[in-house]
Design a protein around this nucleic acid. Sequence first.
RNA 1: GCCCCCUUCGUCUAAUGGUUAGGACGCCAGGUUUUCAACCUGGAAACAGGGGUUCAAUUCCCCUAGGGGGUACCA
Length: 477
Amino acid sequence: MSETVITRFAPSPTGYLHIGGARTALFNWLYAKAKGGKMLLRIEDTDQARSTEGAILAILDGLRWLGIDWDGEPVYQLSRAERHREIAEQLLAAGHAYRCYATPEELQAMRERARAEGRAPGYDGTWRDRDHSDAPAGMTPAIRFKAPREGETVIEDRVQGRVVFANKDLDDLILLRSDGSPTYMLSVVVDDHDMGITHVIRGDDHLTNAARQTQIFKALGWETPIYAHVPLIHGPDGAKLSKRHGALGAEAYRAMGYLPAALRNYLVRLGWSHGDAEIMSTEEMISWFDLDAIGRSAARFDFAKLENLNGHYLRATPDAELIEHLKALIPDLPEGGSLAAQIGADGWQKLERAMPGLKERAKTLIELLDSAAFLFATRPLTLDDGALKQLDAQGRETLAALLPALQGVESWTPQALEACVRGFAEATGRKLGKVAQPLRAALTGRATSPGIFDVLEVLGRDEALGRIGDQVGLGHA
RNA sequence: GCCCCCUUCGUCUAAUGGUUAGGACGCCAGGUUUUCAACCUGGAAACAGGGGUUCAAUUCCCCUAGGGGGUACCA
């Protein structure tokens, strides 16, 4: 018998849902699902100066897009400030905290001095034992935690193993700012306790915090949650993820044309593995996921692998579903408005019919859209360099000879069209490629496209013959 | 500076006190082919360095180097 697992994802709304946060959310979600537990969402907005409404929305949207849901309503940490203050008072009354009257300037000077003397830059504990009556008049103090000075604090981390911190290295942190607002360190402890969090799965940038939080839990006489500190994700060059490379929000990956399922699959394999399994369904992820299989070293973000996975998921997704993804995506693209107009109602039908050939070749939805451009192009087509090369004198001559044969095709089906073109090639002693390539260029304006007989069919008799005519000088139709 | 964590092919990773150190992406070659993809076959590619422990270390221990995180009245 074991208690129900309750995890939480606790982003601070100072920016978008970045890739590291997305993976943390995914791990929390998977673990909760794997254990039949719950994942709660807590918005850590206690830094009022940096938290924004827009960031909250971006994070919630990002999670929804990724297909990660949470149990109950999100908890806004700021709304619990009263409770946090109450606990700070309780700590103060119990002698586990004290009032600190040091000014920011004094603290700054203290740090500089410590640095100059080669000591730890933490708070020196000036007000720890100093009498209350020494307090400067008219000043509201901050409340500091009276951290233990002797001994050590041990974290039994499910990922990192046993991590030991000497208490002398952990200084007296602020619990309540002088304006009475609670700090992150206090709020996290109180909220994790009150929300009944059993497992804290988060980035290993919080490892030191786990030690500090453990001390607070102990002072309060509360049981600590089980910790699992996951290594961070680095940029492709191994450096810390920054806005300049890789630290993009979920919506950026969406805009680049990645599928949520592909991103989930990619992310779950960053730092976690299940034998040789690479491509796995969400159900498989849930049934296989466990904390013990999370590695301890940081991973680099590799777009090439994400693209490969995305291509796989693109091919595996039903055509109609891809259409839905595209319809949702287009309005958010830079040229989305004009593109939507260009496609029109009739274009979506053509797109769906051409989808089997299109999705086979694309790595992202953006590529898919790009390769579908010929469907919506209007005559006469603009030819790219590759197409121009195919449509040299010889190519045009071939098309001119082929045109009558195509005009004579009774039923405009891929099968009939293929029979016609192959027959033409054979009869005139040409290799099929010598016919198919100029044809492709004339029909799509490019040198690459889905199978040429499918292209002919999707375009329809009139449009296809018109495009060929344009290239052999019979332009108009 | 101090504290903590990490180190297997270019990248994500598997495995093991004795293996030809496995898979995936990427790359190269070949096949297939109406193009491009996809697909198939093959190939190059790794245990950071140095000490120990041991009959035997990639695996256990120590040191060095390199990388990362933390060190706020941010979260």
